[in-house]
Structure formats: structure tokens, C-alpha cells
């Protein structure tokens, strides 16, 4: 069943997600600092002293939202979040998280599981998050605990939507859901200077080392310099002669300009798909919605049972 995923899986993600993020990490740090409203609201709604995880914390921008909870961020980038007191971060794989089971009050996973390239791995990623949460019965609590009902931990999961008709990317219902998204990185000192200034204002203590390795860079919502289209489905990429889609290099220098195009893999979630994956992973959706080109859901583990051992793969077509 997994064979019709065109050889996707962990090795594929290493090439089309992790390596690319390593290259563009500094760009993320300088541009993606503003928390999405749903994420901010979720984090601010937590009780003081709550303990949680941020799976795929990247540069740690969500770690600074609420200083009265304790968050352990994780990312599989070699260079991750610098210090965001009082929180902490570790390097870990999304599917092998180094945390005790059923012990956390909350979890967030923002713009992460859409980088997993098979239906099974996406469901496993949701399960890996849910199994960290306390269950409504009180999780690992001992018998001496008072009988007051404790609610289960809550996870906020946020993924890119297929339905983005208001964005310039041109995706919408019916489009291929597995896409490669080019990022063009340019050597442009002026842009770089601007990014640094912005960075200093927002993230004073982290700007220097995070922005040091890459000079100017910007996302390309319209056609990229190196390619004729802004997006290509994974299936199309084998056929194209575009240099940016060369499997061997995944980063291509466009002809005369000092720019590189990085291809990142995304699975675009269609309406209802995230909720489906959560159910498959043994979760209950408490709330869900759409926010600015993304689907999100708040989920909690099913009471009293662990996640089902096997799962039906979600069919995308």
C-alpha cells in the first residue's frame, strides 16, 4: 500500500525537507516570527504551570508566547531554537520523540506534519503527539489523587491547506496534494540588511548567529527565477527539465544570477483530512477550523484506550 507513494518516506524527506530547512533556516528566523492567531490563542489559554511540547519548533517562535508554561521544543534540525526562557529545546525526530508517554498537558505542532510524505507517516506523527498527552482519566497519576475529573491534554496541529484560493499560489480543491514548493535564495545585500534590522527588533538576542550563514532570501509566491512555474506536483517533477528539480542537486543555481532555488516537499491537506488523520491516530477532535491557508485542529487522546495498533491508510484519491 505504501508502494504507490513513489518511493517517498524518510529518505525522501531528508532530501526535500530537512536539508532544505538547514539551508534556509536563517530565512525562517527572520521572516516567520509572528505567531498565527490560533496558535497564540491556544498557548495563552493554557493554565499557568502547564507542561507541553512543541513538536517541530523550528526557530522557536512559539516558545516566547507564554512565559508561564513550560515547553520543550523539538526539531530535527541540527541547529535549532536558541534560548527562549524559561523553555528548552532538543533535537529529535517527529516520529521518535524522547518524552514520557501520557504526561503532558498540551502539545503544539505547527506547520510540521505536512512535510511527511506518506499517509502512514502523517498518521504516525499525529499518534506520536497524542500519546504524549495526559488522558482524561488522569494519565499516570497515582491513586492518591483526588477524584476531581481532570481533562485530557490538548494538542494543536496546524497544516497547510489545499484550499488556498485567496493566495497567489493557485492551489485549490482538485489540485495535486503532494507538491514541491520552490524557495529562491538570492545574494542580495540590501535585502539581507533589511532582514537583519527586522530580526534585531523582534528577536534581539538570536539575530546574529541565525542570520549569519545565508545572505538575502525571499519566498517566491509567483514564478521563480529558475523555473517556469511556482509549484510542481511531485509526479510532474520527473518530467520537467527545470534545473531546480534535478534530484541530484535539489538546489540549483540559476544561470546568470547569484540565486539558488530550494525545493521543499509539502502535502497539502484537503478539508476534513486532518480530522480524519487524528481519528485514525486515536484522537478526538475538540475543535477545528481554517486560518489563512491552513487547516488546524485541537485534539485530545481517546479516553482510557491507547491508539489503535494498525491503521487504514488514508487514500488521497
Amino acid at each position: 500500500m505504501a508502494t504507490d507513494d513513489d518511493g517517498r518516506g524518510e529518505a525522501y524527506e531528508t532530501e526535500y525537507v530537512h536539508t532544505v530547512y538547514e539551508q534556509i533556516a536563517s530565512h525562517f528566523s527572520s521572516t516567520r516570527y509572528k505567531p498565527w492567531p490560533i496558535v497564540e490563542r491556544f498557548l495563552k489559554s493554557l493554565r499557568d504551570g502547564s507542561i507541553g511540547v512543541d513538536v517541530g519548533c523550528g526557530n522557536g517562535k512559539y516558545l516566547s508566547v507564554n512565559p508561564n508554561v513550560f515547553i520543550i521544543g523539538s526539531a530535527n534540525l541540527a541547529r535549532i531554537a536558541a534560548r527562549h526562557e524559561p523553555h528548552s529545546s532538543v533535537v529529535a525526530d517527529n516520529l521518535s520523540l524522547p518524552h514520557p508517554l501520557a504526561s503532558f498537558d498540551f502539545a503544539i505542532s505547527i506547520a510540521v506534519i505536512h512535510h511527511l510524505s506518506t499517509p502512514l507517516r502523517r498518521i504516525q506523527a499525529v499518534r506520536a503527539i497524542l500519546e504524549l498527552l495526559k488522558t482524561a482519566s488522569g494519565g499516570t497519576g497515582s491513586g492518591s489523587q483526588p477524584a476531581e475529573t481532570e481533562t485530557g491534554g490538548r494538542a494543536l496541529i496546524y497544516v497547510w491547506a489545499l484550499e488556498q484560493k485567496d493566495s497567489r499560489r493557485g492551489w485549490d480543491e482538485g489540485h495535486e496534494q503532494d507538491v514541491m514548493v520552490p524557495w529562491v535564495m538570492k545574494s542580495n545585500n540590501k535585502a539581507n540588511h533589511k532582514n537583519r534590522q527586522k530580526n534585531k527588533a523582534e528577536h534581539r538576542e538570536h539575530s546574529d548567529h541565525l542570520s549569519a550563514s545565508v545572505s538575502g532570501m525571499h519566498t517566491q509566491d509567483g514564478p521563480s527565477k529558475a523555473c517556469s512555474d511556482s509549484q510542481h506536483s511531485v509526479k510532474e517533477k520527473q518530467d520537467t527539465s527545470c534545473a531546480a528539480h534535478d534530484n541530484d542537486s535539489q538546489q540549483a543555481t540559476s544561470d546568470s544570477q547569484e540565486s539558488k532555488t530550494f525545493q521543499r516537499y509539502y502535502h497539502l491537506y484537503r478539508k476534513g483530512e486532518l480530522e480524519h488523520d487524528i481519528a485514525e491516530a486515536g484522537g478526538i477532535v475538540l475543535d477545528s477550523g481554517y486560518e489563512k491557508d491552513n487547516w488546524w485542529a485541537v485534539a485530545t487522546p481517546v479516553v482510557g484506550t491507547s491508539a489503535p495498533a494498525s491503521t487504514n491508510l488514508y487514500r488521497t484519491s
Binding site: 513550560f70 520543550i72 528548552s88 529529535a92 524522547p98 518524552h99 514520557p100 508517554l101
Partner: peptide, 24 residues
């Protein structure tokens, strides 16, 4: 790596996570 953080970490291996011996 804060000492506090160690209180919320265990072995990343599936076989270990549920065992008492893996924590802390």
C-alpha cells in the same frame, strides 16, 4: 539542557519509552 528538562525526557526508542528503567 536544563535540569528541569531532564524531568520530561526519556529514551526515544519505542521499546524503552514505556519502561520505568528508561526514566530518568
Amino acid at each position: 539542557m536544563k535540569i528541569l528538562t531532564l524531568n520530561f525526557l526519556t529514551c526515544a526508542r519505542k521499546a524503552c519509552k514505556a519502561t520505568n528503567a528508561a526514566f530518568p
